[in-house]
């Protein structure tokens, strides 16, 4: 799944991987922040979230990801970059399966495989 070393520099590959890690961690942190049913509603819920690290971890991930993505896109064509970035969808679903026990139905597995196939084609030959 890693882009071939020939077509893409190691800096680009590193930024791509970092983007996946940050995007997935950020999403999962928001999920952990928002998913607590004991937190109440409205303002109480926001206070509950703000007093715990998950929300802030999520925000930190997104801020760093913002910069990583700018650096990534400045090094490769935009049309290639957005396609390679689609792998985040897969990473989040797989992580959700392992950490939150979310179900991977057959249709989801097909979707994940198709997105992965597309990203691989672009990464290897893009």
């Amino acid at each position: 799944m890693l882009p071939a070393a020939g077509s893409i520099s190691s800096l680009v590959a590193g930024l791509w991987l970092l983007n996946i890690v940050l995007d997935t961690s950020g999403q999962l942190a928001f999920k952990a922040a928002a998913g607590n049913p004991l937190a109440g509603d409205g303002l109480a819920r926001w206070k509950h979230m703000a007093a715990r690290p998950w929300l802030w971890l999520g925000i930190a991930c997104y801020v760093i990801e913002f910069l990583v993505w700018i650096a990534f896109l400045s090094l490769i064509p935009l049309s290639e970059g957005v396609l390679l970035g689609s792998i985040n969808i897969v990473a989040i679903m797989v992580a959700g399966r392992f950490l939150f026990g979310e179900k991977l139905t057959r249709l989801r597995v097909i979707g994940i495989l198709l997105v992965t196939l597309g990203v691989t084609i672009v990464g290897v030959a893009g």
């Binding site: 049309s79 290639e80 396609l83 689609s86 969808i89 679903m93 179900k103 139905t105 249709l107 989801r108 097909i110 979707g111 994940i112 495989l113 198709l114 997105v115 992965t116 196939l117 597309g118 990203v119 691989t120 084609i121 672009v122 290897v124 030959a125 893009g126």
Partner: peptide
């Protein structure tokens, strides 16, 4: 490769969207 990759990715996204709808 970009067009082929995009077609696979879009098909995948549509599948995932359908999966979400069903659930």
């Amino acid at each position: 490769p970009r067009v082929l990759g995009a077609i696979a990715i879009i098909a995948g996204i549509v599948c995932l969207g359908l999966a979400e709808s069903r659930e």
